[in-house]
Simulated assay, not measured.
Amino acid sequence: MDRFSLHGLTRRTFLQVSAAGVVTATVLGGVRDAAAAPYSKFTWISPRGTLEVLDDYGYWIGKKMGYFDDLGVDEELQPGPSDGTATVKFVDVGQADMGFPSPGIFAFALENGMKLKSAYHWGALDTFSLAFRKGEGTNDLKTLEGKTILLGSAAWQSIVDPMLAVHGVDITKIKYVEAGWPTWGTALAAGQGDAALAWEGLRAEWIGSGLDFEYWLGVQRSPLFANTYVVRAEDLEDPDKKAFLIKYLRAWSMGLEFATHNPMAAVDAVFQQFPSLASNIGPDLGAMSILQQSNVVRGDMSKRKGWGDHDMAAWQIFFDEIYKLKQVSNPIKAEDVCTNELIEAANDFDHEKVKADAAAYELPAELAAVDIDEVRSHLFDQAVS
């Protein structure tokens, strides 16, 4: 079997990403005693072809507040090619050190022999949704049998298949069309399919670009969950690299915690980093996007041991489901490929200081004017009734 093929996937094939096809990285910060650091540099790679989104708000506000300053190594965020599998391939071959795959893409990596582990579960609830043209939506996913779902990348089929299967859909009766990044939403609006994969945060950004759909919302209706942060398993066996990963993920946790207390400050940090995004979606949609995503990232924190905690029982349900779907050829034990060994330390920070930082943040007038509670009350207005 080809190393980058997915067992059982016959209706679509995955794009191939050459190791020479690295996109230009956005380098942040200077080199600080790199010779003494466990990594020559540290690269986090997105599954998207862009960083100009609200999704990574925990990083940008953490960066602005100085939470990443003491890592002792040059670190970067990289957008990655729009092929959804690049985020695991690049980590596997050492071109990146941490990836941000969906659970389905993580399973693709495991099926293809990549020695990766999920070290920090970013999205406790299911971020994924299905978009429909107004008046054509449904909450009965079995009605999609015989219809066409549009994807930005062929790799995303591994996201949609289990999402449908847990609701009793016969996935052999679904047709997928790769409509391209970033045009798959426009293709849906133009009538080129019956539904399209979407996710929280993107809903708000699509409104900003004139794409106003209705949605079956996984965050309300799915037992699954969202993307995770994966690393090479061998890095967790190296004491120095493990210590670095804890510091890095602690900074992420502080950023996510900060945004819980002051979501508009996190919007401001992202807007300062990407002025074109600010002009495209504006303060109200920025607020809507970050609230949608914060809802996914937090989940029920009373049942979690902190930011990044894996619910092993939920992960086992997911792995059992994709084994039944033949997305993987052998059963996967969640505790073998997901770990909470970094979570306690990654959440060991001064929570009161972060809360105080958030309270003291001075917002620009246009963001301070947003009524965040009013925006929150409309969080699910686009859901199919």
Rank of each mutant, 00 (worst) to 15 (best):
E366S: 12
G218D: 02
E321K: 13
M65I: 07
G62E: 12
R304G: 02
L291R: 01
G185N: 07
A314S: 11
S276Y: 08
S129Y: 01
G299A: 07
I149Y: 03
P182K: 10
Q95R: 12
V27L: 13
F4P: 00
W307C: 12
E75W: 15
G185M: 08
R298C: 13
S102R: 03
T26I: 06
N330I: 12
G66T: 04
N112H: 09
G80A: 10
W122V: 13
Y215Q: 00
G84S: 14
D235P: 01
N295M: 14
C338D: 09
L291I: 11
W252V: 15
G113C: 11
D194L: 00
E75I: 06
V169H: 11
Q293H: 13
F132C: 01
Q382F: 10
L277A: 05
P182S: 14
G137M: 00
H167G: 03
I45G: 09
Y361L: 02
Q220I: 13
A86Q: 14
F106A: 05
T127N: 10
R250Q: 13
L291D: 00
Y120G: 04
W44A: 13
K64Q: 14
D140S: 13
F42T: 10
L202M: 15
S5A: 14
R376L: 11
S276R: 14
P47Q: 07
A356S: 15
R298K: 15
I159Q: 08
D357Q: 12
L211Q: 08
G146D: 06
G191K: 01
F349A: 06
K353R: 15
E321I: 09
